[in-house]
């Protein structure tokens, strides 16, 4: 198989919040295209890695950006001494060989780019490569998954209605404090009580969402802070390094956040 390098061999840790694992399995059974919605650092990518491992499928991940063209997904002709050679893009690779293709932050891509996935996401399941004059029929194992973060995108950036309506959705949010503490404690290797305090701090920073911060501290950030603490850094310093400084450049908000952390501990 061509995509062996994309297979995930060790189980990625994932703590289910609801029934998303079984729902996703059902969706995969019918190869339904899925969208994962939720704020940054809440576990979308970890979830899809876990599912790829569970379903034993290779996972091809593409991080979308605003300069991405359709060729970046589908593939392009390159020039070589003898002329041009076709090079499959990541999407084509996944379609041909039956991988799960994960388009991360899909709304970042230009809208004219995202329409290439349309024929793949209805019952046709085909990918026309117009430049090669080829029609690739999707491998039976192929599934398309996209992720996007509804809050952080600007009002002008949104998925086209015709794109949206092709997907089933799974919503992610920051888990309940107890569950989040469990995750932080597991991932960072710190005891539960400390993880609980970090989660409390994280929640305070989420209160500032829209009032100085675009997004509160994610679970990922809390885990990073936890890892520093596990290495022997004191809690305020660890929060400073892992939370306060990266999250904003605004001195006032940084100060407020540091003070809020001081109040929590």
């Amino acid at each position: 198989m061509q995509l062996d390098a994309y297979l995930i061999t060790d189980e990625p840790y994932y703590r289910a919040i609801g029934d998303e694992v079984s729902l996703f399995e059902m969706a995969y059974a019918s190869r339904m295209p899925m969208m994962l919605k939720g704020p940054t650092g809440c576990g979308k990518t970890r979830f899809i890695e876990h599912m790829a491992w569970r379903l034993r499928r290779p996972l091809v991940t593409v991080a979308c950006h605003e300069d991405m063209t359709a060729s970046d997904l589908v593939g392009r002709f390159l020039l070589d001494p003898s002329g041009t050679v076709w090079h499959d893009g990541p999407l084509t690779l996944a379609v041909r060989h039956g991988a799960i293709c994960y388009l991360d932050e899909i709304v970042e891509a230009r809208q004219d780019t995202t329409v290439v996935i349309h024929p793949l996401t209805d019952d046709r399941r085909i990918l026309p490569l117009e430049k090669r004059n080829e029609l690739v029929r999707a491998h039976p194992d192929f599934q398309l998954v996209i992720s996007y973060n509804p809050g952080y995108q600007s009002v002008l950036k949104d998925l086209k209605e015709s794109t949206k309506q092709r997907f089933g959705g799974v919503e992610f949010r920051y888990p309940d404090p107890a569950v989040e503490a469990e995750i932080v404690s597991h991932e960072a290797g710190i005891d539960f009580g400390l993880a609980e305090r970090l989660v409390k701090i994280g929640q305070r920073s989420r209160n500032l969402k829209g009032h100085g911060l675009d997004e509160g501290a994610s679970t990922r950030m809390l885990i990073q802070a936890g890892r520093l603490i596990a290495k022997g850094v004191a809690l305020p310093a660890a929060c400073d390094v892992a939370l306060v400084l990266p999250i904003t450049d605004d001195a006032d908000i940084r100060d407020a956040l540091s003070q809020a952390i001081a109040a929590c501990a």
Binding site: R204, N207, H211, G212, D252, I253, A256, L257, A260
Partner: peptide
Amino acid sequence: RKLKAYLTALWRLH
């Protein structure tokens, strides 16, 4: 501004 953010962070007050 700092103080406002402080209240928002800790108490969700605006």
